[in-house]
Amino acid sequence: MKSCDPLDELFEAARGGNRRALGKLLTMVEKRGETAAMVSERAHRDAGQARIVGVTGAPGTGKSTITGRLAAVSGASRPAILAIDPSSPLTGGAILGDRIRMDSHVDSGAFIRSMATRGHAGGLAVAVPDAVRVLDAAGCDPIIVETVGVGQVEVSIAAAADTTVVVVTPGWGDAVQANKAGLLEVADIFVVNKADRPDARGARRDLELMLDLGHRGGWRAPIVLTTATEGEGISDLWAEIESHTAHLHHSGELIRRRCRRRRDEVADRIELELSDRVHQIVNNESGEMALRRVDRNELSPAAAAELLLSTLDSDNHPES
């Protein structure tokens, strides 16, 4: 593990289309720690070529089916899908059931990887860009990242793509919902899936209404109606993704987005490192003592936090 050679070999194999090598690299990067850092650094050298598409929306809207079909219609030789599902906060386990919706309809030849959130929101914010970087360095393109659009981190991960697709279904809410949901602000493209249901047009109208009130930059998010289980509208969706890609290129927005993404990741990484240290401080002996005093109500939570924070400041070296 310490030597770089086996890593180079793995990357070489992954670039050549060896799926097992790519699978291993993704595991390494997901585990965090020293090896993950080396893999990430190595991937960084070769990454930056792939188009990255985020797909998000409420549970059960059809994201996985859409994602699987998108990979197939993209016509790309090496599409990849990163499907993220939540871990149980209680046990750390997870049921990753996205593949079942992707494989069964179409054989896209896509590399599909399921990823659990592993109970640590900050960890996900670092693990996902790392995994995308590895897929990118391995020559996958496009890379479609699918997350449930619930929770700030999940939404922001899908939003950290070049193009973000937000999926809704008929009857999901009205124009008022549309305006209050933070999910919709990140959309470059809207999909109304299950369009064979009544009131798909009503859902489109509500979205149009919201967009009429204003949208970001020179791009008004198009709205695509799909029935993903039948494959209807998926090529239209891919066409919209391509025209958004073109818009990103000629407007200079692509460079801006990617810069912003890298900057955000710097902050996310620092945050993760700090939260690890917070974790250590709370769980060490003096932390436990302070918490016991909080239990007995001798110390307020705020005072305890201040007390422990002072040890964070004095303890300026990372974990020993």
Partner: peptide, 27 residues
């Protein structure tokens, strides 16, 4: 899942090929 494992659920009508492919990609 409740025992803390990550379960990649493929469900019905799989082939040895599809299972091997999933194992490779999912490590």
């Amino acid at each position: 899942r409740d025992a803390g494992m990550e379960v990649i659920y493929l469900g019905l009508r799989q082939t040895t090929e599809s299972i091997v492919a999933a194992c490779e990609q999912e490590d």
